[in-house]
Amino acid sequence: MFDSYSISELGSIFVMQGFAGLILFSVYLLMALGLAIIFGQMGVINMAHGEFMILGAYVTYFTSQAFQHFLPALFPAYFFVAMALAFVASGTLGMIVEWGLIRHLYKRPLDTLLATWGLSLILQQVYRSVFGPREVGVELPAWMMGSLKLTDTIEVQINGLFVMTLTVIITAVVAVMMFRSRWGMQVRAVVLNRMMASAVGINTERVDRLTFGIGCGIAGVAGSAFTMIGSTGPTAGQLYIVDTFLVVVFGGAQSLIGTILSALSISQTQSTLEFFLSGSIAKVITLLGVVGILMLRPQGLFTLKVRR
């Protein structure tokens, strides 16, 4: 399959597909971070995670519209406002869902799969009814458009670079919150032993609500980033949820580094193979690779080792 390309062309293809893979990696990672908190830490299988992301995308879209109409002077900076709003909107919805639905299901984790799948269908229909079935796209401010020319054959898009920077920052913030903050410590304690956590004085219900909210909020931010590289429609979240679960399970459900490396390897394989083969064959090879590795390491790439 490489015959028709020269060596330097192949080099450029790998670099550019690698870069496209990095953008995919960013969206996977942002989605997976929220999911890793909710699934990895709380054990809730949140099938509606994609819809929380799409809510963030819609919020971003409407913010961009609002800025265009009412504050055109500030349009170049709208994205930062949109991101904050997306986090708040998805996070608030997440907390409401936790209060109304999820908290009744902590003792039956498998049922969360059905309940949140139903929730995802409901949300999709709500989006369709409220925002319309047509896909919408945001207009990027001028500074985010265009690409940087590195060599004659290699170009990288500025919005892609921006999304990646964003991902790095958010990942770092999540890592710090999880392992340095009081909230992170309480989350880990609740996950390890809910009963004991409450017996040392942790308000487990509050921690659960906050955790679910933050996980969904991060999905909302992922949605913001998503608007830069794809168009937003009621069912767009569905396309990503399976891949995201793949990332979380492959990485090892409770390991942040595992999640990052698994998002990286899956997105790079996918993106590079897609150029030379068809999209579905690329997916088949990716899945086979993941299944093979999970057979050898059922706990995922990274696990913590302690005495049981």
Partner: peptide, 8 residues
């Protein structure tokens, strides 16, 4: 049984 948080 002490119930230490094992991975912390």
């Amino acid at each position: 049984g002490r119930m230490i948080f094992g991975t912390m």
